[in-house]
Structure formats: C-alpha cells, structure tokens
Computed example of a mutant assay.
Amino acid sequence: MKVLTDANVGETVKVKNNDAEESLKERLLALGVTNGAHIEVLRKGPKNNLTVYRIRGAMIALRKEESRLIEIV
C-alpha cells in the first residue's frame, strides 16, 4: 500500500482511498481529496513534516500525519 507521504516532489498521483477519521475526512473531501482525484506534490517543508500539494488547481499544505491517511496509486 502506497500513501501520499511516499510520493516525491514533482510526482502526480491518483487518490485510491481516504482513511481519515470523520472530521478530517470531511475537510479533505471539501478540499477535493476524493477517490480518483489527481494530486501533484509541489514541495516539502523542513524535516518533511509539511508538504504542499496541488489538488484540483488549489495549493494545499498537509502535515505528514494527515497525508499518511491518503492511499494513492
């Protein structure tokens, strides 16, 4: 199983599943993290704790704990 934190900068991946809990899952869905959505990894922050992604045209920063819950293809 590959998760979003495994993706490298410059890669574009496709969301397979969102395993987050209810409130975080709702937030991610509102941001466009749905099954089949394409996510581009733009840059990683210090210590790789924070990563910036482009999801459906918007730039979104997620913590490692959050992006670890998103399964990708």
Rank of each mutant, 00 (worst) to 15 (best):
L50P: 00
K64P: 00
N35Q: 07
E40R: 15
N8G: 14
N18D: 11
R63W: 01
N49G: 13
G36Y: 04
T51Q: 01
R63I: 02
D19I: 06
S23P: 00
V15W: 01
D6K: 06
T5I: 11
G45I: 05
I39Q: 08
S67V: 15
L4C: 05
K25V: 01
I70N: 10
L31I: 04
K16T: 14
K44T: 07
Y53N: 11
I60R: 00
N48Q: 13
S23E: 04
G45F: 14
R68Q: 10
N8F: 08
L69G: 10
I39A: 05
K14G: 07
E26P: 00
R68N: 13
K16Y: 08
T12F: 03
A7F: 04
A37S: 11
L62A: 09
K44H: 14
K47G: 09
E65K: 07
S67P: 05
N48L: 02
A30H: 03
A37L: 11
P46H: 11
N8L: 15
G10W: 00
E26H: 05
I55R: 02
V73M: 11
V41D: 10
R56H: 06
R68K: 13
L31F: 14
G45Y: 08
V41S: 12
P46C: 00
L31E: 14
N8W: 01
L69C: 13
E66M: 10
A30P: 02
L4W: 05
E71I: 12
T51I: 02
E66S: 09
N8R: 11
L4I: 09
L29S: 11
K64E: 07
E40F: 09
A37F: 04
V33N: 07
R54P: 01
A7N: 08
D6F: 02
I70Q: 04
G32Y: 03
G10A: 05
G36A: 03
K2G: 03
G57L: 08
L62V: 02
G57Y: 05
A7T: 02
Y53F: 15
L69S: 15
V52T: 12
K44Q: 14
L24E: 04
R56G: 13
A20Q: 05
N48G: 05
L28Y: 03
R54A: 07
I70P: 02
T34M: 11
A20Y: 00
R27T: 11
V13Y: 04
L28C: 12
S23V: 12
